[in-house]
């Protein structure tokens, strides 16, 4: 999940009895699956929660370009390089769709970027892990984009129109990302012994962080319950994680790779895979900024923004001068 631990600012789920007539009408529209559009009345907490959620999601897309960008210059063939560039370009597009959806709620793009750079808003924990080998690019597409799809498909039905529409566009493109990742893994697994070992090593390192992407169990979370009531969270973190495991284990089997979990076992009765305990301490450490690459990612992001300032300014100056010249000619 690209938006982990989204707070609603509320201490308990709002009950119908505590709602104003406006809030009640709003909840009734959501219950009737009518989309909420930017100019419609909405509770302030709904607006703020969505801004946080969409913003985290957008930042994740943008920061998510960095671990992959690391391999563009070293892709093993020209075709793989072109594919990876297309994927990274898609991620930039996904970030943009999402920033625009958030902007309809009254927050400016510059404010969101400033909040990211100031560390006030998070991005997904997963992008604070390093991409050490080419197989990591395969593992990211297969696992990380796979987990993202798991989360994003339900969001296509979420209650906020611009977010739902952005998700539909994103999901259409995301499937390419997952398949190109699996294709890299498949090629490595059909290759030499050391290539297969490289694929196994990537799975070993990315498996647990991928499971952490869905966030800690939120069965008892007030925020998640309220977000579910608002239909901006459609499935619980545990449900999404279970779906991901059930879907991915047979794919690993096909590749002939071993999932690094001794407790992983298919449960005939439930029809699901049981899996081992996740190291939530590691997750919280990474979220707090102590992952392997947090500082490096932020340094790169802030650097890109600052080094690009003169380009943005020059484009603005050029546009202003041309508009002034056009006005003079018209006069």
């Amino acid at each position: 999940m690209y938006a982990q631990l989204v707070e609603t600012g509320l201490k308990q789920v709002q009950e119908v009895a505590d709602m104003t007539p406006e809030e009640r009408a709003f909840q009734a529209r959501i219950d009737a699956d009518i989309k909420i559009e930017p100019k419609d009345w909405m509770p302030e907490a709904y607006r703020r929660t969505l801004i946080r959620q969409i913003q985290q999601h957008a930042h994740s897309e943008v920061v998510g370009m960095l671990p992959e960008g690391n391999w563009i210059t070293r892709a093993p063939s020209l075709q793989r390089k072109a594919i990876l560039m297309a994927k990274v370009q898609d991620e930039a597009g996904h970030g943009l769709y999402l920033y625009c959806a958030a902007e309809t709620l009254g927050v400016s793009r510059d404010q969101m970027i400033a909040d990211l750079h100031a560390g006030k808003v998070k991005y997904s924990s997963i992008f604070n892990y390093p991409t050490l080998t080419w197989a990591d690019i395969g593992a990211i597409g297969w696992l990380v984009d796979g987990a993202a799809i798991m989360n994003q498909i339900p969001l296509c039905r979420c209650s906020f129109g611009p977010y739902a529409r952005a998700m539909i566009r994103v999901c259409k493109e995301e499937s390419f990302h997952q398949r190109q990742g699996f294709d890299i893994m498949l090629t490595l697994c059909r290759g030499t012994q050391s290539q297969k070992a490289m694929a196994q090593d990537a799975l070993d390192r990315w498996w647990w962080p991928s499971l952490m992407m869905f966030g800690p169990s939120d069965a008892a979370s007030v925020h998640s319950a309220q977000s579910a009531r608002w239909k901006i969270k459609l499935l619980s973190n545990d449900e999404l994680r279970q779906r991901f495991v059930d879907q991915t284990v047979p794919q690993a089997d096909y590749l002939g790779l071993r999932i690094p979990d001794d407790k992983l076992a298919f449960d005939e009765i439930t029809g699901h895979y049981a899996f081992g305990e996740i190291d939530w301490q590691e997750f919280h450490d990474v979220i707090k900024g102590h992952g392997p690459c947090n500082r490096d990612r932020m340094r790169t992001r802030v650097g890109a923004w600052e080094e690009g300032a003169w380009v943005r300014d020059a484009a603005s100056a050029h546009a202003e001068r041309r508009a002034a010249r056009a006005a003079r000619h018209a006069a």
């Binding site: 597009g93 902007e103 484009a315 546009a319």
Partner: peptide, 23 residues
């Protein structure tokens, strides 16, 4: 299909081409 930021119409069309017509 969506929105984007650009300094002028020409750049807006160029950006729209990159963001919204890749497929």
């Amino acid at each position: 299909v969506g929105s984007l930021h650009a300094p002028d119409a020409e750049m807006a069309i160029k950006n729209a081409r990159d963001v919204y017509t890749r497929r």
